[in-house]
């Protein structure tokens, strides 16, 4: 008797989010690690950010069924982690943060073994193992023992075992840890390729903001076990409308003085370029009025986009503020 993977996944609710957190809490030895997490994560690539000890890895482990939630629950691709653990596990791939291997196995044997454990028949498992290893760039080294691999190769082997069974959701826990710049670039490229294929969703946990910025469309920021930000990265970048950059023509003296009298901060970066930080209550229309009054033409007005670092730092600050509130 064989099962068909398409049948197994057919009754999943496609309208459901990739991951739905429903008051999810996890406690270890009486100490709360994750506190009432709520959210409906739907992005193709979701970045899981947070300082060390924020609960990123614990959240992934809980979603994988390694830890039981102390309260609340979560749903992955529509299935509840409390009741449908096995079904969820057949749809996900996991690349652990630490070195994780089965020793005394060649790389191809290791990846094939993992594919078989995921439910693939031996022949298909071997075929997919070859494909996965070529995909991650270990094709030439696939008959070597994993124990002899360098750190970068081990990371690639871990990625291969995570994708060999073609999961719908892939958890990558610090995938670029310990990689040199070229290896890191290669890893990021592969993650983006998987994302762009549209065949799998990715949850990328990292404390390296650049990795997340390069791979993810949505970010979830944890701090002290609480969810402080969940947003679309592109929209969040545009959301900061206080920092303006102007390109102008005309005499700027009276215009700059006028901006100062409105209570805004202003700096000239060249003869025709200005950076302005708007105060609360100041509108763009007021700037145009002032420019018209000062005989200044505004040729271009752009908002400075927040970097992920800005968003992250803001989230950390806000987190502290909200924690301080009674």
């Amino acid at each position: 008797m064989t099962l068909d993977a398409t049948v197994t996944s057919s009754h999943l609710n496609d309208s459901a989010g990739v991951i739905t957190l429903d008051n999810l809490s996890v406690t270890f030895g009486g100490r709360p690690i994750l506190k009432n997490l709520n959210g409906d994560l739907r992005g193709r690539a979701i970045g899981l950010l947070g300082p060390n000890g924020a609960g990123k890895t614990t959240l992934i482990h809980t979603l994988l069924g390694f830890h039981q939630p102390s309260a609340g629950t979560a749903r992955i691709l529509g299935s509840d982690i409390r009741g449908d653990a096995n079904q969820i596990k057949s749809l996900i791939g996991y690349m652990p943060e630490r070195d994780s291997f089965i020793s005394k196995m060649s790389c191809i044997h290791f990846v094939r073994f993992m594919a078989e454990l995921s439910g693939l028949p031996p022949r298909a498992a071997l075929e997919r193992a070859h494909e996965a290893l070529f995909f991650v760039g270990l094709g030439e080294a696939r008959y070597r023992n994993v124990d002899t691999f360098s750190l970068g190769m081990k990371q690639l082997a871990k990625l291969a075992q995570a994708i060999v069974h073609g999961p719908r959701l892939i958890f990558l826990d610090e995938p670029t840890n310990g990689l040199d710049p070229p290896a890191r670039q290669r890893m990021i490229k592969m993650i983006r390729e998987i994302r762009d294929s549209g065949q799998a969703n990715i949850v990328l946990s990292s404390h390296l903001l650049r990795d997340v910025e390069e791979c993810c469309e949505e970010i979830l920021i944890l701090k002290d076990g609480r969810l402080v930000v969940y947003c679309n990265l592109e929209e969040e970048r545009k959301a900061n409308k206080k920092f303006l950059m102007l390109e102008t023509r005309g005499d700027l003296k009276s215009f700059v003085a006028g901006i100062g009298s409105m209570g805004c901060e202003c700096a000239m970066t060249s003869d025709h370029r200005l950076k302005i930080i708007l105060q609360d209550g100041t509108k763009i229309r007021d700037l145009y009025k002032l420019a018209a009054g000062s005989q200044v033409q505004i040729r271009r007005l752009t908002y400075k986009r927040d970097s992920l670092e800005d968003i992250f730092l803001k989230a950390m600050e806000n987190g502290i503020v909200s924690e301080a509130r009674p």
């Binding site: 068909d4 078989e116 996965a132 073609g166 998987i194 065949q199």
Partner: peptide, 25 residues
């Protein structure tokens, strides 16, 4: 996910019976 194509593809083939998977070890 083919060796030459080198692209990610989901697996949609048949799966082995769940009861027999412990014998893989």
């Amino acid at each position: 996910m083919a060796v030459l194509e080198r692209s990610y593809k989901r697996y949609t083939g048949a799966l082995s019976p769940e009861w027999s998977r412990f014998l893989i070890i």
